[in-house]
Design a protein around this nucleic acid. Structure first.
Lengths: 292, 292
DNA sequence: ATTTTGTCTTTTATCCACAATAGACAGATT
DNA sequence: AATCTGTCTATTGTGGATAAAAGACAAAAT
């Protein structure tokens, strides 16, 4: 097997949702931009839909013949890209499984475990190494440095520097900058979720990322923005793993966010800094608690 | 061709220098640690030396038979690792060659150009992407973001944050911490080179890296230390490329270093910050000048 | 009792092949 | 005149093969 056709399968599934909504599909280029894939893939999707008798396809005409049913969709497991699969598998190993710091990581073993080729695993490890959790010994193995207390402290130290700097530049954005609108949208979402916290507290993780990324982006600094990837991945897996008191923690964090957002809106640097520090402080504590 | 034997060739050359100095070579493990390679490679080296009649090898006895001559050495081009070759070749393309920002980078073309397989080029690009000069479009090409003014400004912004923080933690190191000794050694080297600046100003580049890395290391933060890789590579190629007024620039920078070192030694935070800022300011200007 | 060597196994680095996907271009259609 | 489709080519993503290098272990030597 060479390349996997996950792009096709995922786009096919998304295209089925379009089929459910209209009587005729638009042109190939239009579908391509809508689904974010090339015309080659679009034509493969259309051909498959024709085979399944979902549409009648003749040049420009793409008439919907019937509504898609569950059996038309590709199973969700088949639409994940290989690198996502490797990432998940790897993170489970090093976070959930008892992975000791200092442990050796074996490309071949990892590849066999996941059921993939070594090349993909190798490329994943290279990409992943910038997160500071593993380190390469050339011509030899990788070393797991581990999700330790030191790691968390180093991570949060830089995060705090970057976020304070970003928050400060947020206050200097022009009044008509789209970030202000997005900030208001995020604020509204906070209030919505808080109003129904018992049912919706799980939505916090995604909202948290969206908010902090917005702040980081206002730095206009690629290094600061890229660094946020590390935060994202750490917190993402951390949330999946440590669910004690999630409701309370999330509610508290959202209150802090609201105070932080309010401070940003005043454009008063001292207030922004105070609110930002307060939130980062409790975020750090949450992270540290989950480690030891 | 699978793996290239550059490790062997490079270690062989270095081992020839040992042969020139002694009558008998030490044990295999000892040689291994001295040259930083495994026993497998050491044994390959010894076998080759035996073939060349450089040594008489019988178990523990490794008697030197003759002095190595120029012809015994492998040519320098053959001892560079493939990733170094790719890096150099790539940097020449994007720095020296007129590479426009926004240009597409083609793995296949790059590989053909360098005369190597695509896998190695691909892995290089993945590793290199953390420097923020290129960006990947999945399933498609890479985009060259270019060594632009924005890049330099974003880089120096983070550098200044990190170095100020590191310099501050330097002042809190225990008096018997080895960093103080290394600092004094670096200081002495500065004075030596300044005393003979006309002949030795080219040594600055290496000294500069050694000094700033020492400062960054005192942060004990892997993200700060890793970031210094970016600075290193940018300045490394930048020095090779822009040589106008090198003597004056380097002399000035060294004077600033001396002031910075003196400030560190007082452990007075205000003085450290002032000296550090002054130096970073002029380093930034030098970099910016070379760009437009 | 340690260290060294001989031998063997395992793993990494690298190239190559091939399917999936992107993308280019000319002719067809509105 | 602009957009769309049919067809073709080029490039990326991934598995597999293989030489180089690392590393394990027992027997041999100090």
């Amino acid at each position: 097997m060479a390349k996997q056709n996950t792009v096709f399968k995922d786009a096919f599934n998304r295209c089925l949702r379009l089929v459910a909504e209209t009587a005729t599909l638009p042109s190939e280029p239009e579908l391509g931009t809508a689904l974010g894939v090339s015309r080659t893939t679009i034509r493969a999707i259309l051909a498959r839909m024709e085979t399944l008798q979902l549409i009648a396809w003749n040049k420009r005409e793409k008439r919907v013949l019937r509504q898609p049913v569950a059996a038309d969709y590709y199973p969700a497991e088949e639409t994940d890209s290989l690198s996502d699969i490797i990432e998940r598998s790897f993170m489970r190993r090093i976070l959930a499984g008892g992975a000791e710091p200092g442990m050796q990581i074996n490309e071949l073993e990892l590849a066999r475990d996941i059921g993939t080729g070594t090349t993909s695993v190798r490329e994943f490890l290279i990409r992943f190494s910038r997160f500071g959790l593993i380190e390469k010994r050339p011509n030899s193995h990788w070393i797991l440095k581990g999700f330790t207390r030191e790691f968390a402290l180093e991570l949060t130290e830089v995060r705090e520097m970057f976020e304070l700097r970003s928050a400060a530049s947020f206050t200097t954005l022009a009044a008509d900058h789209p970030a202000w609108l997005e900030l208001s949208r995020i604020e509204a979402l906070h209030r919505e979720i808080l109003a129904d916290i018992d049912n919706r507290y799980r939505e916090f993780s995604e909202l948290d990322e969206r908010f902090h990324l917005l702040v980081h982006k206002s730095s206009s600094n690629r290094f600061i923005i890229d660094f946020y990837d590390i935060i994202t991945i750490v917190f993402h897996y951390h949330y999946q793993w440590n669910k004690t008191n999630a409701r309370e923690r999330n509610a508290l964090a959202m209150e802090e966010h609201l105070a932080y957002i309010a401070a940003l809106k005043t454009r008063d640097l001292a207030k922004v800094e105070a609110a930002c520090r307060r939130h980062l402080q409790s975020a750090r504590e949450t992270l540290l608690q989950s480690i030891q």
